[in-house]
Amino acid sequence: TFFRTRTGLGEGNPSRFAPRQVLFAHAAISDPRVGRLLHGQRIARQGFGLAEASERDMDLVLDDWRLARERSGAMRALAGGEGFQLDLVLTPTQPILLQGEGGFSRKGPRPEQASWYYTLPHLQVSGRLEREGRWRPVRGQAWLDREWSSTLLDPAAVGWDWTGINLDDGAALTAFRVRDARGKSLWTGGSLRTADGRLWTAPNGAVAFEGGRTWTSPRTGAVYPVAPTVRLMTPAGERRWVLTPLFDDQELDSRPSGGPVYWEGAVRVPGGSGYLELTGYAAPLRL
């Protein structure tokens, strides 16, 4: 995951060292044999070819990490961390999926609480993974989200729950809710694109995250709902998926790179697999 933020600092400073833009990034491996995330992170002010984000195409660099679109349309990803390195090629197999209203995804009751947001589900992955000094070939499926915004969360919001699922039949499920301090949904959204390309975009109130088993972090004391049931109230009737984590301890502490503590990990559903993100449980999230 790569992030780019405008700091509001040094806007009138002509120095190339002025921290007008900051890039930070996280990479993690979920390995049940380890039982926790293996994690790496980077942070730097933009500039000097060491930390750059192109405004013309997908081309991000942060020290020795890279995410860039190649001429073929595939994407190359290089990243690593605690005991691992990734060198992956991600090839689209489906058209871009525009979230929200033609890519404008509401996140709250006020119109400015929104993001521009698109998804590339069912990416074909090939490449290699290094663990403990040994490289091995890997292949599989992936999911890419691209989102940008100037104002995102309502002041009453403390965090969100989000999931993206590649379903085995070629369908793609996105679901999220923004929560307040009582755990009530302030806003919900998502989409379901079927294998034949039909897209349903969920209006506010048509998505629910319910119940399920929780896990308490021994490090932060945060209680995460790691196995929720996601419900979509579609015009054709209710659809539901029970999410099961690959393992419970997929908490990510990004405070060394200026981020929060949150839970982000691999999950399975009957007939698919993907990712679940749970923020604002260790402490209210401030963006």
Rank of each mutant, 00 (worst) to 15 (best):
F2V: 04
F2T: 07
R4A: 11
G10C: 07
P14W: 12
R16H: 12
R16N: 09
P19H: 07
F24V: 10
A28C: 09
D31T: 01
D31S: 11
R33H: 14
R36W: 05
R36Q: 14
L38E: 12
I43K: 13
R45A: 12
R45L: 01
R45E: 01
Q46M: 10
G49F: 03
E52C: 00
E55M: 00
M58H: 01
M58S: 00
D59S: 07
L62M: 05
A68T: 03
A77E: 00
A77L: 15
G81A: 11
G83M: 03
F84D: 08
L86S: 05
T91E: 07
T93Y: 02
I96E: 15
Q99A: 15
R110F: 15
P111F: 15
Y118I: 09
T119D: 14
P121N: 14
P121Y: 14
H122A: 13
Q124T: 10
V138L: 07
G140D: 02
L144V: 02
R146N: 03
A157Q: 04
W160H: 08
W160P: 04
D161V: 01
W162H: 03
D169V: 07
L173R: 06
A175Y: 01
R179A: 09
A181N: 00
G183F: 01
G183A: 03
G190F: 02
L192W: 11
L192K: 05
R193I: 04
P203W: 07
E210Q: 10
E210I: 04
E210S: 14
G211A: 03
P218Q: 04
R219Q: 11
V223G: 00
V223E: 10
L232E: 10
T234V: 06
R240W: 13
W241L: 05
V242Q: 15
D248G: 10
D248V: 06
D253W: 10
S254A: 15
R255N: 09
R255H: 12
P260Q: 15
V261A: 13
A266I: 04
G274A: 08
E277Q: 05
P284F: 13
L287T: 15
